[in-house]
Design a protein around this nucleic acid. Structure first.
Lengths: 122, 122
DNA sequence: CCGTATCCGCCCTGATACTG
DNA sequence: CAGTATCAGGGCGGATACGG
């Protein structure tokens, strides 16, 4: 259920950060939550075209455990669950800004196919 | 031999950047090459405790293909091969700076075991 | 010194079906 | 609406042995 613990100790800060954002959808989840402040499960699913419920849940749980995401459950019918970034999640997203900009440059250089290139300053 | 091509198009710049730094040793390789400007194969191997020759070669080849690393072969006996960062590799490393700083904070917060925490400004 | 070649286990991811 | 359970495939990382 849990993510496999890292094999060994971290070698540097990059390692510790990559350990937390490695995952096919985590970058995008971070960006979605930062852009909208609060998102429900179904909203996130719609915002991540192609993601399965299992992977979305799994990633959200890991990010919650890593202290990036806050999960608020409302005891209602129908059930409602809202996800938002914690302070650490927000600072991580800030720290990813330059990397995202570099990635956009890389895409432009290589003319890679892209679905959507969000503005870095959103 | 080649890295598996990404399953689909990139969703955002973060994706495109993570695609290139994902790999157990790539962050550290980047940092080693940026700190020393030029490193031989055996020097890199010593700088990455625990890496196997296969993984080091594989990562270096991928990074070369991605335009991050320059590989210079000298036709000498004994053979000598020197690795260095390209301009793109250098800018990527710059873009990773904030992420590395965030990672260092995370390590401090969690009291994780760490082998070595290099200074961000080296 | 600088790699290749081969084999292997495990985790990551995904498809599908089912539940409160 | 918001998940959980189960099964399966494939890539990634690693161990080991060999080559120029």
């Amino acid at each position: 259920m849990d993510r496999t613990p890292r094999s060994g100790p971290y070698i540097c800060g990059i390692d510790a950060a990559l350990d937390v954002v490695s995952g096919k959808w985590k970058g995008l989840i971070l960006w979605e939550l930062d852009a909208h402040r609060v998102r429900r499960f179904s909203e996130l699913r719609r915002g991540l075209p192609g993601v399965t419920e299992k992977m979305l849940t799994q990633h959200l749980r890991e990010m919650e455990k890593d202290g990036l995401v806050h999960r608020e459950v409302y005891a209602e019918v129908p059930p409602r669950v809202e996800y938002s970034l914690t302070e650490h999640g927000h600072t991580l997203n800030q720290a990813l800004g330059p990397l995202g900009a570099w990635g956009v440059d890389r895409i432009r250089r290589e003319g890679s196919e892209v679905v959507d290139v969000p503005e870095t300053a959103h």
